[in-house]
Design a protein around this nucleic acid. Structure first.
Lengths: 246, 246
DNA sequence: TCATCTTAAATGTTCGGATAATGTTATGAC
DNA sequence: GTCATAACATTATCCGAACATTTAAGATGA
C-alpha cells in the first residue's frame, strides 16, 4: 500500500509533507491552533482546494481536528502508532469456524447456577438453551473440540435444524431475529482436560487443553450467545497477527 | 461516531445515500462499471465536486474502486462487515507488559538447532542472544511467567541494562537501532508445564500451562526478536474483544 | 503478427468564487 | 451580573472551469 514516490508530486502532497514535517518538529504545539486555511493559502500561494486536500490528509492521519466555527486544532505531532488485528467478516473469526462441523450430542434448557454463571459470565438464574457436542473436520477422524453452546432464552427458536450444518449458529440467530452482532469477546485459558470430556475427545484426562469462551453481543447490547470450547492442546493453536496500520 | 442525521442533509450526503441504496439493491452489478462522474453530474444536476465527494465516501466504504484511465468499478453491494481488535500502542500489547518486571536468570548466545528453530520459527543455525528469567508483578510473590527472550545477532547490543527494568526490550531495540516495529505475531498453545520450569514457577510439573510465542518484525521485514513464555494456567488468561467498526 | 504510436475517455489536480453552517466573542438589555 | 442577541471568524459545502495524468483501445507500420 505504499505508493511509489511520484516523479512529480502533487502540490497538496508536497504541502502535506511539509506540514507533517513541521508538526513532527513541534512547530505547532499539541492542543493549540493550526494556521487557518486562508493563512496557508497566502503563505504558500496555493488555492484553497489544494490546502484543504493537504489538511484532509493530515486529519485522516489523526494529526489534526477541523471543525467549522472552531478552526483547526493540533492533535498530535506524529501519527499514533496503531496496531490492528482485523477480521473481514464475522465468519472467519477463526479459521476452523467454517470448515468444521458440529456433531450435536446433548441438548436442553438450563438455569444457571452460581458457579456456571461465573464461568460463562452471565446472569445467575437466567435461562439458556444448551447444546453440546463435538466439532471436527470433514475428513479428519479426531475431533478438534468439545463445545457447549448457550443461547439466551428469547432466541431459542434457532435450535431447529442445527445438527451437522456448517453454518455458524450466531449467524443463524442474528439473521432469524434481524439484528447484527456488535461485539465478540474471546477469552482463552489453559486448563486440564476434564475427565468426562477426555473420552469423547480421545484424549487423556488431565492433559493440557485450551478452554475458549466466546460471548456474542447484539447491537442492542444484549448478550445472546455464549460458547465454551475445550481444545486438546496437541490439536489446536491460535495465532494472531498484528500489523501496523499505514 | 454516528453523527445525528442533520435536519438538512448535504447534497453529497444525499447522493451518497441514494447511490449506496442502489448498490445494495443490485442496480450496478459487482465487477461492472459504475456511471462516470459526468453522467452522475448530468443525471442529478450536481456539480462535479459534489459528485466526487459522494464517490469518495463510497470508495472509503469499500464499495467502489476508482482509477484514472479506467473508471469507477463496483467492488461490493454492501460494505464488508469488519471486526477489529485495535491496539493503540505497541506497549499495551498485553496488559501485563508494563506492570511486570523481568528477573533475568540466564544469559548467553545460542546457535539454533533444528528443533528449537522450529519452535521459534526462525532460521536453523542462526545465532541469537538468549536471556531467560521470571516475570512477576511488583507486589505479588508468585511469578506470572517464565520467559525466554531471543534477540537476533545484529542487535545484541541492547543487552546492556536489561535487568529488572520495566521497559520492554523490543522497544529498546527499536529505539537504539532506529527502526519501527511493523508486525507482531502471537501464537498461543496449551502445553504441560515443563519439569525444569515447574520449580521456578512454584507450579506442578505437567500442570496445564499457556505457551505464548511472540515474533517481532522490523519495518524492513527482518525478524529481530522472539519471546517464548510459559504461563501457569491458573495465573493467566487472555481476553480479546472484537468490535464492529462503524 | 507483433510492436509502437495515437487517440479518446475517465479520473486526478488545481484554480477562482460564492454561500451555508457552526462556534466564539463582543454587545446590550434587564 | 446574567442572559439573549448580534457580529465575526472559520470551516463546510457547492458551483464552474481548465488542464494533467493514467489507462484502454484502436490505428499504424515493420
Amino acid at each position: 500500500m505504499n505508493k511509489p514516490r511520484r516523479s512529480k508530486p502533487t502540490l497538496y502532497q508536497e504541502l502535506h509533507d511539509r506540514l507533517a514535517a513541521d508538526l513532527a518538529a513541534g512547530v505547532y504545539p499539541v492542543g493549540g491552533r493550526f494556521p487557518t486555511e486562508q493563512e496557508l493559502c497566502a503563505r504558500y500561494s496555493l488555492g484553497r482546494h489544494t490546502v484543504r486536500e493537504a489538511l484532509r490528509l493530515l486529519e485522516e492521519a489523526g494529526l489534526l481536528s477541523r471543525q467549522a466555527g472552531v478552526g483547526t486544532v493540533v492533535l498530535a505531532r506524529t501519527p499514533p502508532e496503531v496496531y490492528s488485528y482485523r477480521i473481514d467478516s464475522i465468519d472467519n473469526l477463526t479459521e476452523y469456524a467454517r470448515v468444521t462441523i458440529f456433531d450435536k450430542k446433548q441438548e436442553g434448557v438450563v438455569t444457571l447456577r452460581p458457579k456456571l454463571a461465573e464461568t460463562l459470565g452471565a446472569e445467575q438464574g437466567s435461562r439458556w438453551l444448551r447444546m453440546a457436542g463435538l466439532r471436527h473436520t470433514q475428513n479428519d477422524e479426531l475431533p478438534v473440540a468439545w463445545t457447549d453452546i448457550y443461547i439466551s432464552e428469547p432466541y431459542i427458536g434457532v435450535r431447529d435444524g442445527i445438527g451437522g450444518v456448517s453454518r455458524a449458529i450466531y449467524q443463524k440467530t442474528s439473521e432469524q431475529f434481524g439484528f447484527t452482532i456488535a461485539r465478540v469477546e474471546r477469552r482463552i485459558a489453559a486448563v486440564s482436560m476434564p475427565e468426562d470430556l477426555a473420552a469423547e475427545l480421545s484424549s487423556e484426562p488431565g492433559a493440557p487443553a485450551l478452554m475458549e469462551r466466546r460471548r456474542y453481543w447484539s447491537d442492542k447490547g444484549e448478550l445472546f450467545e455464549i460458547t465454551l470450547s475445550f481444545h486438546p492442546g496437541d490439536r489446536f493453536t491460535q495465532t494472531i497477527l498484528l500489523e501496523r496500520e499505514t
